[in-house]
């Protein structure tokens, strides 16, 4: 009667998940949006979505890629919305009043920043996750819903495009 037929896995609490990953999510959002207010909005939305979906997350699933998938999807949506409203900075040609602010509120131009903004969305996100947050290729692949090889190729292409600009 006292034998153990099933090993249970109690999922990590949401509070603990937040504590473990809030910093790197914020870092990713700041680097990806390049705008403090946008990053703060997306930070809140990422965690609210995660909170709502948390009961349905398989306790065996990797938490980190799942959170980054939410954050990167929200970033992609935000970029799409901004593009619809004409706030596309990818061409590097900013009218003064629309120049994207630095994460600290400044508007200083920085070639690397513009160059990253000009990358295709998937490349930019894979690049940011790898270089700015330090995610493993496996985790990025899970977050972006693609293969590890594809992530490696995206990061490689991004570096190849950015490096000559320096």
């Amino acid at each position: 009667m006292a034998s153990r037929a099933t090993e249970i896995k109690i999922p990590v609490s949401f509070e603990e998940a937040l504590r473990r990953h809030e910093r790197e999510i914020m870092r990713f959002l700041l680097r990806t949006t390049r705008d403090r207010e946008d990053a703060l909005d997306l930070f809140q939305e990422t965690w609210l979505r995660a909170y709502r979906a948390y009961p349905r997350l398989d306790p065996d699933a990797s938490l980190r890629p799942w959170l980054f998938r939410i954050a990167s999807n929200l970033c992609r949506n935000r970029i799409r919305d901004l593009a619809r409203r004409g706030r596309v900075f990818a061409d590097g040609d900013y009218p003064d009043h629309e120049r994207p602010r630095d994460a600290d509120g400044g508007t200083g131009g920085f070639d690397l920043r513009r160059a990253i903004a000009a990358l295709p969305a998937r490349q930019g996100q894979a690049f940011a996750m790898r270089k700015f947050v330090g995610l493993e290729y496996r985790e990025i692949a899970e977050a972006l819903g693609c293969s590890e090889d594809s992530v490696r190729a995206n990061v490689y292409q991004a570096v190849k495009k950015l490096k000559p600009l320096r």
């Binding site: 809030e22 914020m26 390049r34 990053a39 703060l40 930070f43 630095d102 994460a103 270089k131």
Partner: peptide
């Protein structure tokens, strides 16, 4: 890349401030 976008420790300070504000709103 590591120091992008503001360079050095200033980046971490900025991240800390944003995180504090993010936590408050969340």
């Amino acid at each position: 890349l590591r120091e992008f976008p503001t360079g050095g420790s200033g980046d971490e300070t900025m991240l800390d401030l944003a995180l504090a504000e993010g936590r408050r709103r969340l």
